[in-house]
Amino acid sequence: MSSLLLFTGILSALTSTGYSLLCSHCNALGETSCTGDEKKCPSDDYMCGSTNTVTIMEGVASKMFTRSCEKRSACGISASIGFLKGKIKTATSCCNMDSCTPSMPILPIENFQKNGVTCQSCTSSDSYWCHTGETMECTGEEKRCIRQSTKTSGAKSSTIAVRGCATKNICDLGNQDHDYGRIKTITEMTCTSSSINVHHNLLLLALAALLSMKLML
C-alpha cells in the first residue's frame, strides 16, 4: 500500500510541475532510423518524435530521417508540398515516454487528381524568398498556396525557399524550429487559399466596374 501511495505521489508531482520528456535527437540521410544524444524537451507540450521526409527535385529523390522533441500538434501529421520541379512529402510519429522510439512515420499516398486550386510556384536554393509569374494546378489534398523557407545551420548550412501547393495540415503547423544535434533548422511559412483565383476575381470586378462607368458616360 505504501508503494502505491509513493508512486501516486511521484506521478502527481510530475503532472503538477509539467514533466518534460527525455528524447533522442539525430538526423540521417537516406536512412529509416538514427541515433543521437538524449535531451530534455522544452515543456510537457512536446513528445518524442520521428520524422520521415522525401524531397523530389526534377525527378531525383532524397530522403531524410530525424528524431527530436516534437510539439503534440505535429504528431501524426502526414503532409505534402507540391511545386513545379517536384514535391516534398513528410510524416511524423510520436511516443510519450522517456527515451521511447516512435513507430516509422507513413508518408502520404500520391494523388494526381486536380482539385481546382492554382498557386504560384518557384524554388530557390540560396534565399529566403522566391518570386515568379509561373503557376501550377494543385492536386489531391494540396488545397493551400504556401511560401516556405528553411534555414539549416551546424554541420550542414543551407537556405531553401519554395512556393507551391500544400496540404492544410502542414500549414496548420506554422513556423517551426528543430535541434537535431549536429544540425538545426528554422522553418517559416505563409499559407493562403488560391491566390490566383483571388487575383482573377479582383481583376474581373475591376473590369466590370470600368465597363459600367463607360456605359454611364
Rank of each mutant, 00 (worst) to 15 (best):
A209E: 07
L205S: 06
L203P: 07
C75E: 05
T150Q: 10
R182C: 03
K156Y: 06
S12G: 14
D177L: 12
K143Y: 04
H200Y: 02
L210W: 06
C119S: 01
L211F: 14
A61R: 03
T135Q: 11
C165M: 06
S121N: 06
G30M: 04
H200L: 12
G18A: 09
R182I: 02
S24G: 07
K89I: 14
C191S: 03
D172Q: 14
S78M: 02
C94Q: 07
C122I: 06
C95K: 05
C94I: 01
A13Q: 07
C165L: 07
A155T: 09
A161E: 02
T90Y: 00
T51S: 09
Q176G: 02
I170E: 00
I186V: 15
S157A: 14
R72C: 05
E31N: 11
L14S: 10
V162R: 08
A79I: 02
K143I: 10
E31W: 10
E142W: 12
A28N: 08
I183D: 09
F7P: 02
C191Y: 09
C130L: 04
A74I: 06
T135I: 12
L6S: 05
C138M: 03
N169L: 04
M47H: 13
S127P: 13
S16A: 13
F65W: 11
T35V: 08
V198F: 10
C69K: 02
S20K: 10
R182T: 04
T187A: 07
T139K: 12
I81M: 07
L202P: 15
S78D: 00
N197Y: 01
T135C: 01
S125W: 11
C130A: 05
Y19Q: 04
C94V: 01
S3R: 13
G49E: 12
K89H: 10
R144E: 01
R67T: 09
K71D: 03
E31F: 12
K114S: 10
R72A: 12
E142R: 02
C122M: 06
C48I: 05
N96W: 06
L84Q: 13
T185N: 08
I186Q: 12
S80K: 12
G49Q: 05
S73F: 05
A79S: 11
L203K: 11
M64D: 00
V162N: 04
I10F: 04
C23T: 00
N197R: 09
I56K: 11
K63T: 15
T139R: 13
K63Q: 13
L173M: 10
F65Y: 12
T17Y: 03
M1I: 05
C145D: 01
S125R: 12
S99E: 04
C75S: 03
C41H: 05
S212G: 04
T32E: 07
M213S: 15
L173N: 02
V54G: 02
S16C: 11
D98N: 14
N27I: 05
C119E: 03
A61M: 05
N96H: 08
R144D: 01
G133P: 14
T53V: 09
E142Q: 11
K85Q: 13
G36V: 11
F65V: 00
N111F: 01
L217S: 11
D44P: 00
M1P: 00
E110L: 13
N201V: 15
A161T: 08
T167I: 05
M213Y: 04
I146C: 03
E70M: 03
S194T: 07
